[in-house]
């Protein structure tokens, strides 16, 4: 338990820092995968076995492959990313200040929470309990999720599914 927590939190925080400091987006994607694996370990230590599996399959599998495709598509001919002087002066230290303020504002909420994560027992977090909860108590959320996913898929197809020439032609006709 403690080992899982330490390893998972170390991986998650290291991956997150990697995303923030990596110069190339590809390295950021690798940091992100490390972060997701660490989070899956944390979920396992919290007896959320189904969520850990979902985290790995959906995030480290599907979402990150999507990210990799877009990174390859957009940055194939890109210049090396410039970390030169920012157009916004003082962006760095202001952002750091806001982050520290956020941390100090939220810290008291986190540390006063009582309770411990007990060792594994019973069927809490298993796929049977999860399915019962999802399909009875939270059926509306389940249906709404189906709608959200369908709208997202149709939106993506409408956004990038059409070839560019036809869209330009349609715009010309509308304008003339």
């Amino acid at each position: 338990m403690v080992l899982f927590f330490l390893l998972g939190s170390l991986m998650a925080v290291a991956g997150a820092s990697g995303v923030v400091v990596a110069r190339k987006p590809v390295h950021g994607v690798i940091g992100m995968i490390l972060n997701f694996l660490g989070l899956a370990l944390l979920y396992v230590s919290l007896q959320a076995e189904f969520l850990a599996v979902v985290q790995i399959i959906v995030y480290a599998g599907a979402v990150m492959v999507l990210f990799l495709f877009v990174v390859a598509l957009l940055t194939a001919h890109a210049k090396p990313p410039a970390m030169g002087p920012s157009p916004l002066r003082g962006q760095g230290w202001r952002a750091g200040l806001v982050a520290v303020l956020l941390l100090t504002a939220l810290l008291p909420v986190g540390v006063v929470v009582p309770g411990r994560a007990e060792p594994w027992e019973g069927d809490f977090g298993g796929v049977v309990r999860f399915g019962q909860e999802l399909l009875t108590t939270h059926l509306l959320a389940f249906e709404a999720l189906a709608l959200v996913l369908m709208v997202a898929v149709i939106g993506v197809v409408i956004l990038v599914g059409r070839p560019p020439q036809r869209r330009r032609g349609a715009r010309g006709e509308g304008g003339s």
Partner: peptide, 9 residues
Amino acid sequence: MPLAAYLLV
């Protein structure tokens, strides 16, 4: 582990 540790992460 205390829950506060998870919330901290």
